[in-house]
Deep mutational scan, measured.
Amino acid sequence: AQFIESYVCRMCSRGDEDDKLLLCDGCDDNYHIFCLLPPLPEIPKGVWRCPKCVM
């Protein structure tokens, strides 16, 4: 059997509050909206890229 790795935030390495986890459309990394600098108030609509992919 294969275990699917749960999504974890690249900043805090936690997978809780998954309703606040953002998936980068560039590299598929995950980030909590409140772990980003600056934090986001809510999940953005449409395409989102993490700080690494925006640079």
Rank of each mutant, 00 (worst) to 15 (best):
V54M: 08
M11F: 08
K20E: 09
L36R: 02
D16C: 09
C9E: 02
C27T: 02
F3V: 13
L23Q: 10
F34S: 12
N30W: 09
W48Q: 03
P41C: 07
P38S: 07
V47T: 09
K20M: 03
C35F: 03
G46W: 04
R10V: 08
L36A: 07
C27R: 01
E42V: 08
L22M: 13
M11E: 15
Q2A: 06
L23I: 08
L21G: 02
K45P: 11
G26A: 14
G46N: 04
A1I: 14
V8M: 11
F3H: 10
L23R: 15
E5G: 09
P51I: 07
C50N: 00
V47R: 13
I43K: 09
I43Q: 13
K45A: 07
S13T: 11
A1Y: 08
D29N: 15
C35I: 00
K20V: 06
G15S: 14
N30C: 12
C35P: 02
S13P: 09
V54F: 03
E17T: 14
C53G: 01
P51Y: 05
M55S: 15
K45G: 12
E5L: 04
P51L: 02
D28L: 05
C27P: 03
D28N: 13
P38I: 02
C53S: 01
Y31M: 10
V8H: 09
K52S: 07
K45Y: 03
D18S: 13
L22A: 06
L22K: 05
M11W: 07
G26D: 11
G46S: 07
E42F: 06
D16H: 06
L22H: 02
P41G: 10
E17R: 14
F3Y: 11
K52Y: 05
C35R: 04
V8Q: 09
G46H: 14
Y31A: 03
V54C: 10
P39Q: 05
L40F: 02
C50Y: 01
P41Q: 11
D29Q: 15
C27A: 00
D29C: 14
E5F: 09
Y31N: 02
S13R: 12
M55W: 13
P39H: 01
K45W: 04
E17I: 11
L22G: 00
P38Q: 15
H32K: 00
F3N: 15
H32V: 02
M11Y: 13
C9Y: 00
S13L: 13
C24R: 03
D16F: 15
L23E: 10
H32I: 01
K20S: 12
C53K: 00
S6R: 12
R10I: 11
L21Q: 05
E5Q: 12
C50Q: 02
L21E: 03
E17K: 09
M11S: 08
P51K: 14
V8T: 11
I43P: 05
G46P: 04
I4N: 05
G15A: 11
F3G: 12
P39C: 06
E5H: 06
L36M: 05
S13I: 12
S13A: 06
K52N: 11
P41S: 13
K45R: 10
L22S: 03
L21S: 03
P39T: 03
R10E: 10
S6W: 04
D28F: 06
V8L: 06
C9L: 00
P51T: 03
R49C: 03
L36S: 08
A1R: 02
C50M: 00
V54Q: 03
C9P: 00
M11C: 10
C35Q: 00
P38H: 09
I4S: 11
L37M: 13
Y31H: 01
C35S: 03
M55L: 08
P41Y: 06
K45H: 11
L23D: 13
E42R: 10
V47I: 09
Y7M: 13
R10H: 15
L21R: 07
F34E: 12
Y31G: 01
S13G: 13
C27E: 00
V8N: 13
P38F: 03
V54A: 08
P39V: 09
L21D: 01
C50E: 00
L37Y: 05
M11N: 13
Y31T: 02
R10T: 13
E17Q: 10
W48H: 01
R14T: 08
H32P: 01
D19Q: 12
N30S: 10
M55P: 15
D18T: 10
S6P: 10
S13M: 07
P41M: 03
K20C: 04
G26K: 14
L22Q: 03
F3W: 02
R10Q: 03
K20H: 09
E17S: 11
G26E: 07
G46I: 03
R49H: 09
C50S: 00
G46T: 06
C35L: 01
D25I: 07
R49A: 06
I43N: 07
H32W: 01
C9M: 01
L36I: 09
P38K: 05
P41L: 14
C27Y: 01
S6N: 15
Y7D: 15
D28W: 06
C12M: 02
C35W: 01
R49W: 10
V8I: 06
D29W: 02
V8Y: 08
S6Q: 04
E42L: 04
V54I: 12
V54T: 13
G26V: 07
Y7T: 15
D29P: 05
C50R: 00
D29A: 13
C35T: 01
C9T: 02
L37E: 10
D16W: 05
L37Q: 09
R14S: 15
D25F: 04
Q2H: 07
D19C: 12
C12R: 03
E17W: 07
C27H: 00
F34N: 14
Q2E: 06
R10L: 12
F34M: 08
Y31V: 09
K20L: 10
M11I: 09
E17G: 12
Y31C: 03
Y7E: 15
L22I: 15
D25P: 04
G46A: 11
R49L: 08
K52L: 05
F34D: 08
I33G: 15
D19H: 11
L23G: 10
C50L: 02
F3E: 09
Y31Q: 02
Y31S: 00
V54N: 06
G15W: 07
D18R: 14
F34A: 08
V47D: 10
L37S: 12
Y7R: 14
G15L: 09
D28Y: 02
Y7H: 10
E5Y: 08
K45V: 07
F34I: 05
C9H: 01
E5W: 04
D25M: 04
I43S: 10
F3P: 08
D29Y: 13
L36K: 02
D18Q: 15
S13E: 15
D16P: 12
L37V: 10
V47G: 11
Y7A: 15
V54K: 12
K20Q: 10
K52R: 12
C12N: 02
A1S: 06
D18V: 13
L36G: 02
K20D: 01
W48S: 01
D19W: 08
C50P: 00
G15K: 14
C53N: 00
R10P: 04
E5P: 04
K45N: 12
N30L: 06
Q2P: 08
Q2V: 08
V8D: 05
L37W: 15
P51G: 03
